[in-house]
Design a protein around this nucleic acid. Sequence first.
DNA 1: CATAAGGGTTCCAGTTACAGGAAGGTCAAG
DNA 2: CTTGACCTTCCTGTAACTGGAACCCTTATG
Lengths: 133, 133
Amino acid sequence: MNIGDVAKHAGLPAKTIRYYEDIGLIQPDRGTNGYRDFSENDLHKLRFLGQARSLGFSIEDCRDLLALYEDKDRASADVKHITEEHLEKIDSKITELQAMRRTLAHLVQACAGDDRPDCPILADLATARADPA
Amino acid sequence: MNIGDVAKHAGLPAKTIRYYEDIGLIQPDRGTNGYRDFSENDLHKLRFLGQARSLGFSIEDCRDLLALYEDKDRASADVKHITEEHLEKIDSKITELQAMRRTLAHLVQACAGDDRPDCPILADLATARADPA
DNA sequence: CATAAGGGTTCCAGTTACAGGAAGGTCAAG
DNA sequence: CTTGACCTTCCTGTAACTGGAACCCTTATG
């Protein structure tokens, strides 16, 4: 299978697939013409990677997950551990964004948004916050 | 004021301040020894930038906000517009992360996390999702 | 006066996960 | 034979810094 077909079937851009090969996530064969020749297993891996990436796992997490996926003697605890750590990161990110969201929503609501220069948003940004020294 | 002092007062790393000068957000003077010499106004700008960045505004947004901040003839509508667009981006990001969160939480909860190889997380990742072709 | 500590300076590389684009080889069809 | 749609590699750029090397300036101290 050529890269274009694999891309369609895996739902990933060809650029991304080449990149995944570059960083050693997959090792497709090569035809005599130099074209990559993807196996069914390569396709499975790429789908796996696409799914993991869409859940926000980092490439390095994906590398580890893929290794566990192919290790039939793995312990599910290892997979769970990676996933839990990832979940925690997502949670902190959500919390952080929600805090920003609250502040921004207040500011937007407080700003007239007309042609006058008075602006609570700029006033807030200009308010010094850091100067413990 | 030297960069170290400004860094303390603004709550930003010196590296970041140099970077902000590089990309033209601030233009501190230079002393005869080549050291940057920051004015009170520079410090205000840096605090402004720190605050805007902590609310998740991009550097380019910050550049625009800073220009509006210094333009006493600005229209608050311009500021509000930037902020609303930023708020929308934050909202989509939150929504996206919450979707990941839900899936990940289900998977974590379904995984035994012991020394056996059976793992619903890997099973889910391995489940082909993209193949509309 | 030499030196050592603690500033400051520039510049270059690395980070994340690709995307865009140039230059050029390959293949099937008309 | 040429055209168009593939494929290849390689280089650059993205965002917003961070780390580190190599080197200069200043001040205090023995």
